[in-house]
Design a protein around this nucleic acid. Structure first.
Lengths: 181, 181
DNA sequence: GTAGTCATGTAAGACGTTACATGATTCT
DNA sequence: AGAATCATGTAACGTCTTACATGACTAC
């Protein structure tokens, strides 16, 4: 998948400008893209030329002109077709696992430092996720079921961070018991 | 990170040809790249010109000529520097979460079908992972600690599939209780 | 004969990131 | 005076995927 359907989804909630979409991506963990200009503005122009969205240029007095994008019937149909399509496999790209694979060349202290750093990293990510959820969590709350689904999405991310933490802590303990005893 | 260090790591275990590396990637879940020609052969040529690996051309009678790649001192030093470097954040790219975010437009039956498909998808991935571990699991077993680390890597992946399964099953139950009762 | 394995490479393109470019307004 | 916000876009480059290209040998 590309960022296309994430944008289409947001526009199915309400109209946005590119600049606003950027901020939504920056403040979301589930929408995992960086939300950089290139991707967002290019995708919007492309969706525009596909007829999946329409744009309305709005001139403002004290700020730059902006383009408000609205989803079209065609865009809504495309989105629904994608939503009910067969889900893609989960992608777990964890480079730390590859670091660990070749970590036997490290001594006990170096390995411990590495695991500490990773634990810190994950703790940080979990905190950032919780913080993003806490403040704002701008989400469409159109039905109780939608609120429930968005809760579950957030829970999913928290779950993965959490087991990652348990996993790394257990390794630290076990390494200590087995080889530093 | 790129595939570079994954290849360097494998070559720090023992010499490989590009073709052999391809198969290693294909049979590994932790080494998440597809292991396509372009990436592997290009990376090997690049590592070669960097002086991180050396190659030995081996002519064979009944099979095509092959290039056996061996890691150099420089390559080993590069690898170690990378292994002890600060870990990158975990990347959780789960497009299914984005599908779910816009799934409130589906009726109860459509949503249930979608969740079923995802559960099947995850079950399949877990099985593939276990199957890859079961048969072969060609791993460098140079020290007990290395064996332990590789076990933990495999466990990590299994953990994530497992909680994903629990998570999706719980959603199915709860949706049923709350809105189909 | 048809498919699979061995073996190396290239081409084209999708997707993603950082950095560049511009320029007014507003807050500290 | 300097930084942040609003607002849109482009350039260059890194990474990854699919498909193309070649050719011999082996197994069914």
């Amino acid at each position: 998948m590309s960022i296309k359907y994430a944008i289409l989804g947001l526009l199915s909630w309400k109209p946005f400008t590119g600049y606003e979409l950027k901020k939504v991506f920056a403040n979301s963990t589930a929408l995992y893209w960086s939300g950089n200009n290139n991707q967002i503005y290019k995708t919007l122009l492309q969706l525009r030329s596909d007829g999946s969205v329409s744009d309305e240029v709005q001139h403002q007095e004290k700020s730059p002109t902006k383009k408000m994008y609205t989803i079209t019937e065609k865009g809504l149909a495309e989105l629904k077709a994608w939503v009910i399509s067969i889900p893609e496999p989960l992608e777990h790209r964890n480079t730390f696992l590859i670091q660990l694979a070749w970590a036997d060349q490290l001594n006990a202290s170096e390995l411990n430092t590495l695991l500490d750093k990773y634990e810190e990293e994950i703790k940080m990510q979990l905190l950032i996720h919780q913080e993003k959820e806490r403040r704002g969590s701008l989400s469409p709350q159109r039905t109780p079921r939608e609120v429930y689904l968005w809760d579950k999405i957030s829970e999913n991310l928290a779950n993965h961070y959490q087991i990652e933490l348990y996993w790394v802590r257990k390794i630290k303990l076990e390494l200590n018991e087995k080889w530093n005893a």
